[in-house]
Design a protein around this nucleic acid. Structure first.
Lengths: 195, 195
DNA sequence: ACCTGAACACCGTTCAAGT
DNA sequence: ACCTGAACACCGTTCAAGT
């Protein structure tokens, strides 16, 4: 077994892992395919067998990000009670954002690009469902005002995303995030609760 | 007068104008200093006299963006009444976002970078004031619940920014934006209004 | 003071050729 | 099937030299 066998074994997985590491450490703009190949010990042309271009690699990272975020939201939303469920949802979303700020940017950069793959669009749809479902449940339980579910979900999603953006880019310190989050859920709910 | 006099005249302004045009048409990732210089008819090394590097050019664009956005918010917030003022504020913010999506990204990319210039930080502070002021006014008028103004402003700003992001990246169509916006202000206010 | 031209050290992408 | 090496057309940045 030589140090550098001709076939890497699983170059695709190594590229994804390395790329996410670079993303996390140095940001998307610092991601270079040539440097990535170099660090893995493969020629600069090798990645093209697995990802047709740089965007294809970023798309694969975004896809995995959407899948992981959706999973996290689903696991969070199993609490009982509308307020508890929304709070858990909000914390899961913002937790992901603070834990993976650069990945989130890559994800949102492709979110509604018409050139995105069907697979990516499907993953985005799943994420939307994970956010809309708790709202629909809350309406069914009478905890949230009746009305167009999508438009209410849009407002909730916008607030979550705004807080997540502020947290991801430093406008909000990690310590301040939880407080703002709980405030936001509280203020939103008291506007959404019938009385 | 030759076609290409040795001195451009106002190369700095030409660079800013050309860069913003490219930003608008093709996005930040497609902005190349060399191509910019070429389109202006100047050598590729000339821009460095006016902007030490590419980031310095982007910072100048961001600065101008923050100043224009702050001005737009100030002009919007002169309506009478808390609800009207917040609605106008929201529309102005989101209008800027849909009209200048790529510029907004450049602005937010630098928003809390510790390496940002003092001038840029000052412009960001002015923007924050423009958002916080109407909240404080609403509290003084008894239209908004008492409590920490900054934390309430944070929730409002997050919602605005979330809607603006969705509008800027296509998650929300231009036609849908106004409706979502008015819904958001309505839902937020009914949570913020004492009763 | 302002700009050019050449040079340096990088990129992403493509493609014949090798294993 | 998978990877290499060379080539092409770009980048951003720096710096002596020109006007």
């Amino acid at each position: 077994m030589a140090e550098h066998p001709y076939h890497h074994g699983d170059l695709r997985a190594a590229l994804l892992k390395g790329a996410e590491h670079t993303l996390r450490e140095k940001g998307a703009s610092a991601l270079s395919l040539r440097e990535l190949a170099r660090s893995i010990g493969v020629s600069h042309a090798a990645p093209s067998r697995h990802f047709k271009d740089k965007q294809a690699l970023l798309d694969a990272l975004a896809l995995s990000g959407f899948q992981r975020l959706t999973l996290a939201l689903r696991q969070a939303a199993t609490d009982a009670g509308t307020q508890g469920e929304l709070t858990a949802l909000a914390r899961a979303y913002v937790g992901f954002a603070t834990g993976n700020p650069e990945l989130l940017e890559v994800m949102y950069a492709r979110k509604h690009d018409p050139n995105a793959s069907e697979q990516l669009k499907e993953a985005v749809d799943q994420l939307v469902v994970a956010v809309v479902q708790p709202i629909a449940d809350g309406q069914a339980a009478g905890d949230i005002v009746p009305g167009d579910t999508m438009s209410i979900a849009m407002v909730v999603a916008a607030t979550l995303h705004g807080i997540a953006s502020f947290a991801a880019n430093g406008a909000l310190t990690p310590e301040a995030v939880t407080g703002v989050l709980d405030d936001a859920v509280h203020h939103l709910l008291h506007g959404l609760t019938p009385r």
